[in-house]
Write a protein that binds this DNA or RNA. Structure first.
Lengths: 239, 239
DNA sequence: CCGTCGATGCGAACACTGTACGCACAGCGG
DNA sequence: CCGCTGTGCGTACAGTGTTCGCATCGACGG
């Protein structure tokens, strides 16, 4: 209702400028974009819908944001700001790494669109939150006396991103189905078993465990791989 | 020229049906789609452009493919077919795993759009090529006597996908710039060093090595992380 | 040989998309 | 009071994925 359409530019029919919220700002736009992405997924975000949500005209957003891609970069950096990392002077590097990995995974699952964007654009964003994220990790791994901290970090991050991406895609599919995760698994089980017929080493029996408590199964899977990577990294430490 | 537009439906102005190539088929569509994706990137693929390339009308494709998303699934499975895995009875599981990882990485870099699609959709495709890909890996890891082969595989794949995704995104950015990778690195170096000012542990000096031979540097980075993961996995083997 | 039928191609149309352009207007310094 | 700068936004353009209905085809049955 903010968009007053005056076909006749009459001076009389003019509202005296109700303040109506702090109007528009880059921060408000990014905040609302993240909310929309979380709620409706990456395909549902359009500049027009976002503007409507902000009680603004469609093209007004372009006064604060150059392009939709730039808006996505800002959204990515915004959610990177949510990741709270362990303090830089943690004595136990391994516990700190676990904490960091879990923190990343948690936000990646809270914002499943993040993985899509990272897949398309990579981590070449250089936003402030992403920078301090990297900085903290670098401090952690150099303090742990890794001979090649950058490579160790990239190894860890690759695993975490890869696994989180798969999980996020899965959760997106679950959300689209409208069912709970357990219902979704139960419904897909026959199709999955049917698909593995004729494949010798692909057994669907592990999905039986997944049907009971899917979230816990995913947690365990992530932790398993994480310990594997950390074990491998620990071997690189000077003894 | 195939689209003869006859505003007047005259019987006389009719070409006698030149055979003009095997016409349309699902296989031909998918093949051309992959070619377009490779050549122009994921954003440049539209149903209309693809149809034009095939000398077909825009909506004719929908006779062979239900939707664009389905077409992308088919394209993904198509490129998965390119991955040639080591024989199932390889005696050295570790060498075979390295070979498989490198094969995946190679195709992921040859088709940089693959990572974008995987990020959006995950590996929930169940296409035949993807199935036999998983099957071969499962055979490899069960033969190696891993107690939990599925988890070991997912750990390895997560790392490989994560690292390949980052590389593919990087290569896409390079391609968009129109420069060679070395030129691109050289041009971005000042900006990168500028960005790390004020961050204690982020040093841009490692980029110096990357400027000389970027591809070799990426190869080494990938191998480093791969060995880390395999070391960690080896610890899970019964001794 | 002709009529029918299912499969295939496709032009037109619909509902959207991201974004460029230019106008309207607010607040403000001179 | 004038003009300027920054902000909102209506209009418009070129493009998107996809639906609908019509035209045309090869094959097949009578």
């Amino acid at each position: 209702m903010a968009a007053r359409t005056n076909p006749v530019p009459s001076v009389w029919a003019r509202q005296p400028r109700e303040p109506e919220q702090p109007s528009l700002s880059r921060a408000a736009i990014v905040r609302e974009a993240v909310a929309m992405l979380d709620a409706e997924g990456i395909d549902a975000l359009s500049m027009r819908k976002l503007a409507t949500r902000l009680n603004a005209g469609a093209t007004s957003l372009y006064r604060h944001v150059a392009t939709k891609d730039e808006l996505m970069e800002l959204a990515v950096d915004q959610v990177f700001g949510e990741i709270i990392l362990p303090p830089a002077d943690s004595p136990d590097w391994r516990a700190a790494a676990v904490e960091a990995a879990q923190a990343f995974r948690a936000t990646a699952l809270r914002h499943p669109w993040l993985s899509s964007v990272l897949g398309q654009a990579g981590l070449v964003y250089l936003g402030p939150n992403l920078m301090s994220f990297s900085e903290r990790l670098a401090g952690l791994f150099t303090a742990a006396a890794f001979p090649e901290p950058a490579r160790a970090i990239e190894t860890l991050i690759s695993y975490v991103v890869g696994m989180s991406t798969a999980e996020a895609a899965w959760l997106t599919a679950v959300a689209r189905s409208g069912e709970s995760e357990a219902e979704f698994v139960a419904r897909l089980m026959p199709a999955a078993e049917q698909a593995t017929v004729g494949y010798e080493h692909l057994n669907g029996d592990s999905t039986a465990a997944a049907a009971e408590d899917p979230a816990a199964t995913r947690d365990a899977k992530f932790s398993y791989g994480l310990e594997v990577v950390l074990d491998g990294l620990a071997l690189r430490l000077p003894r």
